[in-house]
């Protein structure tokens, strides 16, 4: 099937198989930050934005993205580095494999929730698994980033 999508601000038109997951389509387009961690939509590693809202790209078909705008970490480099610096200062990125999906979700949360508390943060990010960190350092980084962001505005 023929689809036209906007990836990180650039229009792409191409032929895709009807059962191609958006995840595989995006990696094929060079968006290698998007990672696969499971086959059951459980891990959050493949999180991207579809029209600005976070989705699991393993659970969305490429054809469903036809006519829509997709954002990956490649398109959010400045913000990724801003939040990422807080994560790095806590040592919370560890192996880094879950980081792109986590950061896509954190940046979406920062837009969506005003001043979220600890429980709200945990709940918003519940679908983003990490096996290295035990999540504590990530929570510290998120809270510091949100405080910094508030001051910046």
């Amino acid at each position: 099937m023929n689809i036209t999508v906007t990836i990180n601000g650039t229009r792409h038109t191409g032929e895709v198989l009807p059962d191609l997951p958006l995840l595989d389509f995006l990696r094929g387009q060079g968006c290698l930050s998007v990672k696969r961690g499971c086959e059951t939509s459980n891990c959050g590693l493949c999180t991207v934005w579809l029209d600005g809202a976070p989705v699991l790209s393993c659970g969305v078909l490429a054809v469903q993205a036809d006519g829509r705008a997709i954002t990956t970490l490649e398109g959010l480099q400045e913000e990724a580095a801003q939040f990422g610096a807080f994560l790095a200062d806590e040592g919370g990125e560890q192996c880094g494999f879950c980081a792109p999906g986590l950061i896509m979700t954190v940046l979406a949360m920062a837009r969506e929730l005003d001043d979220p508390g600890e429980d709200e943060i945990r709940a918003y990010l519940a679908g983003n698994l990490c096996r290295c960190s035990g999540y504590q350092s990530q929570l510290r980084a998120i809270q510091k980033y949100l405080a910094w962001r508030k001051e910046e505005r």
Partner: peptide, 13 residues
């Protein structure tokens, strides 16, 4: 900070 940290958090391949 880990030497590779910023590469990892910006999703480098």
């Amino acid at each position: 900070r880990k030497k590779d940290a910023m590469g990892l958090v910006t999703g480098k391949p």
